[in-house]
Structures are given as structure tokens and as C-alpha cells.
Design a protein around this nucleic acid. Structure first.
Length: 200
DNA sequence: CCCGTGATTTAT
DNA sequence: TAAATCACGGGG
């Protein structure tokens, strides 16, 4: 049985790279759903124009992004979508890693049941809101502690980050409004993995 | 290409 | 009070 991943107390780029290749697990209705994290984005806090915590902004919606590293920050957007972030660093930092895609491995059949639009496994979790739909994550799970929660956690499958050669970095998706921050290469994915999001 | 859908922010 | 915005997904 793998140990839990616990290395959240670092800057979001470091944690983003560490998370690739680890396993996200969601337990619901007594079943395990999950898979390997294959695509992530780092959000750098108050200086990062694309971050929900830009200029120290604090609202009821983004409160959990200021929790200690290892908590879940789940936000609601576009009137219908949820996205899952893993908070990084220390309480108050406001930094996080957006989980954009996983390669589904456990409970695939139950993911298809929730992802009615998906016809192939590559459509199941290949985008941040697809992933939350497949895993039944919403604002109800916002703020969960991934180090302790029985419902949501990350298992450590590798002790070392993936070699940089196997990781592609690009600008983040959908943040064109963020000026120079839009051009920074803060998105990371496993090269050649078919479960990475198509992007925009 | 366009649209849904709604919380939140920004403009008037 | 109104309009625009938004870390998206699905359909044409």
C-alpha cells in the first residue's frame, strides 16, 4: 500500500513538478476512483495576475487557497464547472497547483457513469472540470486536508520527481488576460501522455 | 465558431 | 443597477 504524498510545503512550481506521476485518489460510495496526475499548473499567489489570490484578494470563495499546503482548494466557475487545486507552502501564502488532468486507472466504470459526454477513456479526466466531474468533487470538498481526509488524497508512487526530460512546460491555459504572467511557462505535463487536456 | 450558466467584480 | 468577466466543456 503506497504512502500518502506529503511534500506540499514548497513553492508551487516545485510541488507541481513533484505531483506529476503521483496518484490522485477519491473515495466515494465505498469505492476508489483515481489515476496518475499527468498535467498541472502552478499559481504563484499575490504577485501572479492569473491567481485567485492576486494582490492578496480574500473572499469567501477563495479562502481555502490561503490554508496550509496540502489542503484542497475547489472553486466554481463559468456557472457550471468545478476545478481542484492543491494548496502549497505555508498558511497565508495563497499559492496552489491546479490539477488539470489525470490518467484514469481505478474506478473507470464509475467515472464514465458521471462523465456522460465521454465515449473514450481519454475524454474522462483530460481537463480540470472533467476531472472534478469524473471524481464527484465540488464545493462540498473544498478545504479538505489531503494529508488526513479519507475521501480525497494523493498517493506517493515515486520518491523523485519525473526527470525534466519527460516533462513539457508551456504557458497556462485560459489566462490570456494576465499580461506577462500569461506567457510564463507554469503549466507542466507528461510528454506524450494521451490523457493531457487538448488545451485551447 | 458559439453558447450555457451563475458568482463576482467593475463600470456607470 | 447594469454589464463584463471567468484557471471550462460540449456541440456545430
Amino acid at each position: 500500500m503506497p504512502e500518502r504524498f506529503r511534500s506540499y510545503d514548497a513553492d508551487p512550481v516545485t510541488v507541481a513538478r513533484r505531483l506529476l506521476g503521483q496518484r490522485l485518489v477519491r473515495v466515494i460510495d465505498g469505492r476508489r476512483l483515481g489515476g496518475t496526475i499527468v498535467e498541472v499548473e502552478a499559481y504563484l499567489g499575490s504577485e501572479d495576475k492569473a491567481a485567485h489570490t492576486f494582490r492578496g484578494r480574500r473572499t469567501a470563495s477563495n479562502a481555502s487557497m490561503y490554508l496550509q499546503g496540502g489542503h484542497a482548494y475547489i472553486y466554481f466557475t463559468y456557472g457550471m464547472h468545478h476545478c481542484l487545486n492543491v494548496v502549497t507552502g505555508k498558511a497565508g501564502d495563497g499559492t496552489a497547483v491546479l490539477l488539470r488532468a489525470i490518467e484514469p486507472l481505478e474506478g473507470v466504470k464509475w467515472m464514465f457513469a458521471r462523465r456522460t459526454a465521454a465515449t473514450r477513456d481519454t475524454q474522462l479526466c483530460s481537463g480540470p472540470a472533467k476531472l472534478t466531474q469524473a471524481l464527484a468533487l465540488s464545493r462540498s470538498e473544498d478545504g479538505l486536508d489531503l494529508a488526513r481526509s479519507p475521501q480525497l488524497f494523493i498517493e506517493r508512487l515515486r520518491r523523485r520527481p519525473l526527470p525534466a526530460k519527460r516533462v513539457v512546460s508551456t504557458p497556462r491555459i485560459g489566462v490570456g488576460y494576465a499580461g506577462s504572467w500569461a506567457r510564463r511557462r507554469l503549466r507542466f505535463y507528461i510528454e506524450g501522455n494521451p490523457h493531457v487536456s487538448p488545451g485551447r
